[in-house]
């Protein structure tokens, strides 16, 4: 019932802001498109045989000289932009979601434990978090990426690329989760209902699972949304800097890096179409994150 009423509040907030509805729709469409990319994309951008230089640099369908097969044109290799973007978004989202999940598991686990156990354990975890904060996300990701380059044998690097990116991005985002989970756990620990459970002799694992975690979920959901946006941006940035995904398996960031070569030429779509796609995706996620923040912050209602 409480959930229902909060939902109705959420629905009310939702009804009031067309921006949020639009963002949710955009996010769903992009997510679906990315998930179904192998089946709905006109061509397979990873298959060298599926495109040819003959089709290179075709403009989008609404411009002169367009080829109706390529709705958004082709790049300098003759790759269909629609397919490249769908597959790129798929890669970006896979990495973003996995990194966010990795950060969430690590951060929430450490945060709950630190908030519950307190004392020295808490101090150590929080000092590690401090050191992590001293190294901004991009830097951490770059460093881990650099270390992986140094440690992994050269032929293994290609296959582990995605995994390295997930770990690198995930490690740079866990602190947010840990701090929020810790603060909420700390607060809940001092609430009388938790004190009552402790006094009654309820097992700590059950207290964490039944009494504390449900009260932490709201703020964590907000962090998860905002961090998903950050993770996608980080991946795009790393790929743009040339340390992310390679050109033969491009993510959105890689596509933009390739497109940069056409900044000064007339083939604007190769740069701006994936750029616009990335920005729309991240704006939509951030709008949803903001919306969730409003829903979970009763004071702003």
């Amino acid at each position: 019932m409480r959930a229902l009423i909060r939902d109705s509040d959420a629905l009310h907030l939702l009804a009031r802001s067309p921006l949020v509805i639009a963002s949710a729709l955009v996010a769903i469409v992009i997510l679906a498109g990315a998930a179904l990319a192998p089946w709905i994309a006109p061509t397979d951008p990873y298959d060298l045989a599926s495109f040819s230089l003959v089709d290179a640099l075709r403009p989008p369908a609404f411009q002169d000289g367009a080829d109706p097969r390529f709705l958004l044109g082709t790049d300098d290799q003759g790759r269909d932009m629609v397919s490249a973007i769908l597959h790129g978004a798929r890669l970006s989202l896979v990495i973003g979601l996995s990194a966010m999940a990795f950060a969430a598991v690590l951060g929430v686990g450490l945060g709950l434990a630190a908030g519950w156990i307190g004392g020295r354990f808490d101090a150590v975890v929080m000092r590690i978090a401090d050191v992590q904060l001293a190294l901004p996300a991009i830097l951490t990701a770059l460093l881990i990426d650099g270390i992986a380059r140094g440690v992994l044998p050269r032929d293994a690097q290609e296959e582990t690329r995605v995994a390295v990116l997930i770990v690198a991005i995930g490690l740079s985002l866990w602190v947010n989760f840990a701090r929020t989970a810790r603060a909420s756990t700390f607060r809940a620990r001092n609430e009388d209902y938790v004190q009552a459970a402790i006094a009654m002799g309820v097992h700590p694992a059950r207290i964490l699972a039944v009494e504390i975690l449900p009260n932490v979920v709201g703020p964590l959901l907000v962090i998860a949304t905002v961090d998903l946006a950050s993770a996608i941006l980080l991946e795009a940035t790393l790929s743009f800097l040339g340390v992310g995904l390679p050109a033969d398996a491009p993510s959105l960031g890689t596509l933009i890096r390739i497109g940069m070569q056409f900044l000064l030429s007339g083939e604007w779509w190769i740069l701006w179409v994936p750029t616009a796609f990335l920005v729309v995706l991240v704006v939509a996620i951030n709008v949803l994150g903001d919306f969730l923040r409003d829903v979970f912050n009763p004071r702003l209602r």
């Binding site: 941006l233 940035t237 940069m260 000064l264 750029t275 920005v279 709008v287």
Partner: peptide, 21 residues
């Protein structure tokens, strides 16, 4: 909201394109 969502490198490219190119 757009400011936190547009990656820094895209802002750079946009500015270069507009004011430079």
């Amino acid at each position: 909201l757009i400011g936190v969502s547009v990656p820094t490198f895209v802002i750079g490219i946009l500015l270069i394109f507009l004011f430079g190119v």
